[in-house]
Design a protein around this nucleic acid. Structure first.
Ligand code: FES
Ligand code: FES
Lengths: 143, 143
DNA sequence: CCAATAAAGGACAAAATTGTCCGAATAATA
DNA sequence: TATTATTCGGACAATTTTGTCCTTTATTGG
């Protein structure tokens, strides 16, 4: 469904949000340990998220990543996916036509449309705060 | 959503079905022209579909690919996807956990579940015949 | 049997994605 | 100011996916 980069990005963001709620910054190392991802690769993804202002980074001792507390319930899965993979997940044709359009639809267009639409709605309406609750309760896992 | 292999596979199958309805066999070449796909790569995919008994192939002059007429409304998108990409689209975790389970779900599990389920239902309930009708009417396109 | 046609399949190549390494930049602190 | 901790970013490497080439095998018709 998503690229590996996107998967790591979502998990990393969730972990950062989790710690940010407790006013803690997190280092790259602690993130990769928490989500079980390759360190340098995860660093690249975090850079992208930082450039997109989804997470905030600071260098030097005591530095690391963090998310503004009041943004935790504003950031959606969709924001993260778009920052990393772009919006092709919404806009591209399921059968790989150059573009997905009503004018020249592929044979499965009408079948894919509602699925892509419900995916969009789900990703856009799911924010980090909501997902973190179950992590806090120990009901869901990051690795 | 799907791999390129899968996309070509679905389009190729649709084109073969389209011609099989008129009792025509189709050659690899005519398929790749119709769906605008790389020839040798498409050949591999068709081999897979043939081994999975979704299409039937015959060598030699006048040979080519075909689908049993009475199977056109039995073959679903799901059959094709599973033959080519396997069932990971249904079974894998959206966040890349080793397995998607209720016991150790990822934080987005409950969000992804209905989407994957509706995808499954759509793919399993969509057969080739249905998709071909709009092709025949010139309403949808294979390239 | 021979020639022509078409798929099968193995080996290889290119491209994209995933992942690693290492030095530079930055910030805290002693 | 020197040291240390940390992210940034460029170059590179490994892996996976996509795509190509070429030989073999099967089938048909003359
Ligand atoms: S054209 Fe293929 S999904 Fe819209
Ligand atoms: S565990 Fe992640 S989707 Fe089910």
């Amino acid at each position: 469904m998503f690229s590996k980069a996107c998967e790591y990005g979502i998990k990393a963001t969730l972990f950062i949000a989790h710690r940010s709620e407790k006013n803690q910054r997190v280092s790259l190392k602690s993130i990769t340990e928490a989500i079980n991802s390759p360190e340098a690769f995860t660093a690249k993804i975090l850079q992208k998220l930082a450039r997109n202002k989804i997470v905030h980074s600071s260098k030097g001792p005591g530095g690391g990543f963090r998310i503004e507390k009041d943004e935790i319930d504003q950031i959606t899965l969709s924001d993260i996916v778009i920052a990393i993979d772009g919006d092709q997940i919404y806009t591209s044709c399921g059968l790989g036509m150059e573009e997905c359009s009503e004018e020249a639809p592929c044979p499965a267009h009408e079948k894919f449309k509602p699925i892509k639409e419900s995916l969009r709605i789900t990703l856009e309406s799911t924010n980090l705060k909501e997902l973190m609750e179950d992590i806090n309760k120990g009901l869901t896992f990051l690795k």
